[in-house]
Amino acid sequence: MLTDRASNSSASTAAPPHVEFSKDGDRAVVTLSGAWTTRNVRRVDERMREIGQDNSFSSVTIELSGIELLDTAGTWLIERLRTSLEKAGKHVAIEGRSESWGALFDAVGEAASASDEQVHVERPSALIRFLATIGRTVYAFGDDFTKAMHILGATVRGAQMKGSGRSGIRPAAIVHQLDSMGIGAVPVVVLMSTIIGAIIAQQGAFQLRYFGAEIFVVDLVGILVLREIGVLLTAIMIAGRSGSAITAEIGSMKMREETDALTVIGLNPVGVLVFPRLVALVIALPLLTIIADFSALGGAIVITWAYSGIPPEAFIQRLRDAIDTSSYLAGLIKAPFMAMIIGIMASVEGMKVGGSAESLGQRVTASVVKSIFVVIVVDGIFAIFYASINF
């Protein structure tokens, strides 16, 4: 934006900006002349700052009649000088301002005032910030819960993916997801469960040895693995492996607007994208839990045989006496619920992805953290419930 008192042909021949500063007692006069444009105002920027910091006068007149050319950058320097002098308690008068500059000064003055208000906004106290954080977290939880219920409801109706109401279940998609989330996860589940089972057995035997009760390590491993560790460890690994993959896949499609394309062609994105993955998780997680239980017990058998001299036959016989059907079902019943939680939370975070790669990374991280947290909370709720009904 450029305002010119002379003709456009004089723009190239205008004198450089100049600042003349004079004082008479407590009064000062700042006379500006030349071309105050973006290209050359840097020459007078430092001088304008020095005048704004001068405290040897109480009133000042800024004379603008000598300015030949003026644009936004020059106006900003003038407004900055006026604002700094007024903040210092000085009386400021501007003379020689052309009427054609009115809109320019008004716009720059409003922008300067707005930025000044932002910079000097009062920071709330620590208590207010803490309460505000809690409030935002609770509000975000309510928003996530609403979206989760929407996805759950749409998944329940997931077979009706088309507006005509015709069944849209695709067995091939479910089998593909089973292969990816179930069969693909078997090696890591077996490895981790075997190691965890072996560690529990070794530490249990080490502590029980002081009481001459090493054989009871079988009871410890059997009950702990079948009721708690097996399903919980598997759910955590699936949340980190498959939950993050679900969020990344759905989030990538959201970034490329493929979910909008599904809606345009009459398909329900939740039914197409979430339904097969959720069904596959509900099927795969109980099966992986069974594999994890056997792997953990296998690792415990090897360690107790090598560390405590308990042969596998004695381990299995003691295990039969220590556990019953309820011990096995207590862990297995949790698996479908944990699978639903992981799938729904991963889908919710995937649907929240924006248009940037940074947003995708944040949502994948949030998906894993939230899923693991909720899975552990649900496991604790189940433990309390089982204790209350003596199961």
Rank of each mutant, 00 (worst) to 15 (best):
N8K: 12
A14Y: 11
H18R: 15
H18M: 13
F21A: 14
F21G: 08
K23P: 06
A28R: 04
T31K: 13
D45V: 06
R47K: 15
R49Q: 13
E50Y: 09
F57Y: 01
F57I: 02
I62N: 05
I62L: 13
L64C: 13
I67C: 07
T72A: 11
T72C: 04
A88L: 08
A88C: 08
H91V: 12
A93C: 07
A93S: 12
E95A: 14
E99C: 08
S100K: 13
G109E: 09
E117Y: 10
E117F: 10
E117Q: 12
E122K: 14
R123P: 05
P124V: 01
L127Y: 08
L127N: 10
T133R: 13
I134C: 12
G135A: 07
R136T: 04
T137G: 13
H150S: 14
H150A: 12
I151G: 04
G153I: 08
A154T: 12
S164Q: 02
A172L: 11
H176F: 13
G182S: 00
I196T: 13
I200K: 05
V217C: 12
V218C: 00
D219V: 02
I223K: 02
I223P: 00
L224G: 13
V225I: 15
E228V: 06
I238N: 05
R241K: 12
A245Q: 02
I246F: 15
T247L: 08
E249V: 06
G251Y: 09
M253W: 10
M255C: 01
R256Q: 15
E257G: 09
L267T: 04
L267R: 12
V270E: 04
V270Y: 10
P276R: 01
L278H: 01
I283C: 06
P286A: 02
I291Q: 12
S295W: 09
L297V: 14
A300T: 08
V302H: 08
A306C: 09
S308R: 07
G309T: 03
G309Q: 01
I323A: 09
D324K: 05
L329F: 07
A335D: 01
A335T: 03
M338K: 01
M345A: 05
E349P: 01
A357Q: 00
E358M: 11
S359I: 06
R363A: 14
V368G: 03
K370C: 12
S371E: 04
V377T: 09
V378P: 04
F382A: 09
A387F: 03
I389D: 00
N390M: 11
F391I: 10
